[in-house]
Design a protein around this nucleic acid. Structure first.
Length: 670
RNA sequence: GCCCUUGUAGCUCAACGGUAGAGCAGAGGACUCAUAAUCCUUUGGUUGGGGGUUCGAAUCCCUCCGAGGGCACCA
């Protein structure tokens, strides 16, 4: 039997489910359904990564124990998956992996022991004890990484972003993995098997990373600083650190190093890891080195997929208020529509844009007008012209010539060939992770059948007695094609294709039909079609968008208190030197200033500072100017900018913003 | 800062040295079996700007501008 193993990352249990979790898991679900349809024994793993300092902190913040925290997140994630049709059954995932389970502890410790037992390719011990040194924040009780602290001018130590206090240089006893001995082996493997890391651009990044040289990796933490983790075997003072623990889930779930689970021998050598591009390195460099160290096979493929950006191509985030909310998706869209969109809209491996409008457009164009309408027009005609029974495809000898004349657009062999090619191409694309292209192939077939129907004019054939056979054959061909498409599309549209199956009057389940075994003509004639209902009702774009906007509004208003960096950069703040200053006649407060912004000639700027600054005091000062303020006339004089000054109340004396260091005129403030 | 990728019709992308294409959106027409659907026709681009190599460049080279990403222990 053919075997397949696909994994999503196990999601870190410190935050609630979001679109990214749903996306990756949906893709894995689609792949699994497709492989099982084709007779593969497919194992599908998803789950949660439940250890580490960040979980400890998230738990503290929520007033929970770490275990309560991870139980909560794991159940939320499962619930969300179930909401979107991803469940643990014979068509869904095989295990919801959790790293806090006993079998994983045993397996991960076994993994550690194996690594420790073996030597590196250069003959050194894989694991040694040393000291991990880093910037440590005492109040946080944690080491800080580069993006968790800020370096301040003149300060000896960087500052913690949370506590705004200088960090300590601290070293802690740690076990190290001798990653530095693995550069050559890893590069050799990647060059020999480039298909193991995809897409290519990401593979090149990994190669570049390794070529820069690998440092040894700290793989444990002292229990007194992090205790929410798996104990290092034979050393109660240490717990295993993140990656060794988390990554090993892919094998412990299959029974590696434990007796509760099984399947390692069968599945592991067929492993395909789907990962976000942000964690590709850990799944190639670190994970592969660990596996080599433990003497295990490497996975077949590590595929880094892209991220969903918003409709404008910006990253999604709370501050922008552009996050796609799962409950809105759930409320307004069929699960199948979302699955289709995920696979059709994003070229797997690249980033994609996710907008509700794009989604609606896709659903209406492809699912409602395309697939859905083809099904309903075809079955409506079967009902109307054939008394609701699938007609015969046979055309008798005496009618052949006449029929051919009428149905010039299509002979049977042509559509059979088209379908078989499409099927083969679809499977080939699917096996190669090219889901959007695979779906395009199917939609070309849909267009072709629509054209065949329109060209053959069945409503006219129906009026002519001698054309009954031609009409029947045409409708049979259309329904038979739909049957094929239902089978092929089942992994992507599990619910819709089953409904289509039932409407055609077929008994079985498309999940159980291997697309490779589809044979033209196996649709039995004479079966009774069932009630025809729109599989994908058209979505009223304007109406639904309005509803979504209203529902999403609360979130957005909160976000509007912030501006983005783009907003800020719209304001062109520049350094200017005041070259000339004089009081504007007949005005109490107004000064006319000549400000040099490093441009061809100084700008004339009017400022209401005369009550507080005498003109001669200002000459030579460097000030901050809003350079792209729309020019306006004041007292008949054009002001070409604005001088920035600070004051608390309207009546307070303003203080002009200025510089202590030397700056060039025209320099931009950012 | 260094390195990589990318910039093609309103939108998403294809062509990767030989007369710029597809889908969606827009416009017009046909048709009525169908979810105002489908089918046909059609508008629309000096391929980010400039320079170069070539008989010929979206495609190769240089440069500028814009977008995205990578540069190690954060999952």
């Amino acid at each position: 039997m053919k075997v397949f193993y696909v994994t999503t990352p196990i999601y870190y249990a410190n935050s609630l489910p979001h679109l990214g979790h749903l996306y990756t898991t949906t893709v894995a679900d689609v792949i699994t359904k497709h492989k099982r349809q084709r007779g593969f024994d497919a194992f599908f793993l998803t789950g949660t990564d439940e250890h580490g300092i960040n979980i400890q902190r998230a738990a503290e913040k929520a007033g929970k124990t770490p275990k309560e925290q991870v139980d909560y997140i794991a159940s939320e994630l499962k619930k969300m998956f179930a909401d979107f049709g991803i469940v643990e059954d014979e068509n869904g995932y095989s295990i919801f992996m959790r790293t806090t389970e006993q079998f994983h502890y045993e397996g991960a410790q076994h993994f550690w022991r194996q690594i420790a037992k073996n030597k590196t390719p250069k003959g050194n011990p894989n694991i040694y004890k040393g000291y991990y040194e880093g910037w440590f924040c005492a109040p946080c009780a944690a080491f800080k990484t580069e993006d968790e602290y800020e370096v301040r001018e003149g300060a000896e130590a960087p500052f913690c972003l949370i506590h705004e206090k200088p960090l300590d240089r601290v070293s802690e006893e740690s076990y190290f993995f001798r990653l530095s001995d693995y550069s050559e082996v890893l590069l050799e493997i990647i060059h020999k098997h480039p298909e193991k890391i995809r897409p290519e651009a990401r593979r090149n990044e990994v190669i570049a990373f390794i070529e820069r040289g690998l440092q040894d990796l700290s793989i444990s933490r002292e229990r007194r600083s992090v205790n929410w983790g798996i104990p290092v075997p034979d050393d109660q003072n240490h717990v295993m650190y993140v990656w060794l623990d988390a990554l090993s889930n892919y094998i412990t779930a299959l029974g590696y190093g434990n007796k509760q689970k099984s399947g390692f021998e069968k599945y592991w050598k067929h492993a395909h890891h789907l990962v976000g591009k942000d964690i590709l390195r850990f799944h190639t460099v670190y994970w592969w080195a660990f596996l080599l160290a433990a003497g295990l096979d490497l996975p077949q493929v590590v595929f880094a997929h892209g991220m969903w950006l918003d409709a404008q191509g910006r990253k999604m985030g709370k501050t922008l208020g552009n996050v796609v909310e799962l409950d809105i998706l759930k409320k307004h869209f069929q699960v199948d529509a979302i699955r289709y969109f995920f696979l059709r809209e994003m070229v797997f491996g690249q980033d994609g844009n996710f907008g509700y409008e794009n989604l609606i457009d896709r659903v209406n164009a492809d699912l409602a007008n395309g697939l859905g309408n083809l099904v309903s027009r075809t079955l409506a005609m079967v009902e109307k012209y054939c008394k609701g029974r699938i007609p015969s495809c046979k055309i008798s000898q005496e009618n052949r010539i006449l029929t051919k004349h009428e149905m010039t657009s299509l002979d049977e062999q042509e559509i059979v060939t088209t379908l078989e090619h499409a099927r083969d191409e679809f499977i080939r694309r699917f096996d190669n992770f090219e889901f959007s292209q695979a779906l395009e192939v199917i939609w070309k077939v849909i267009a072709k059948v629509d054209k065949m129907i329109t060209d053959s004019k069945p409503w006219e054939l129906a009026k002519q007695q001698h054309q009954t056979e031609a009409l029947n054959a045409l409708l049979y061909r259309a329904v038979e094609t739909i049957r094929w498409l239902a089978v092929l599309l089942y992994p992507v549209l599990p619910d819709a294709t089953r409904r289509i199956y039932r409407q055609i009057g077929l008994e079985g389940d498309p999940a159980k039909v291997n697309p490779e075994n589809l044979r033209w003509g196996e649709l039995p004639e004479g079966i009774r079609i069932q009630k025809v209902e729109a599989v994908f009702p058209r979505i009223d774009k304007r109406g639904v968008m309005n509803e979504i906007m209203n529902e999403a509004k609360v979130e957005k208003q909160e976000a509007e208190d912030y501006i983005t960096i783009e907003d800020f950069l719209k304001v062109d703040l520049r350094v200017g030197e005041i070259k000339g200053a004089e009081k504007v006649p007949d005005a109490d407060k107004l000064l006319r200033l000549e400000v040099d912004l490093g441009e061809e000639k100084p700008r004339q700027i009017l400022a209401g500072l005369a009550e507080y600054y005498s003109p001669e005091k200002l000459i030579g000062r460097k000030v901050v100017v809003v350079a792209n303020l729309k020019p306006r006339k004041i007292r008949g004089l054009e002001s070409q900018g604005m001088i920035c000054a600070a004051s608390l109340n309207k009546d307070d004396i303003p203080a002009i913003a200025t510089f202590i260091e030397e700056v060039k005129n025209g320099a931009r403030l950012k």
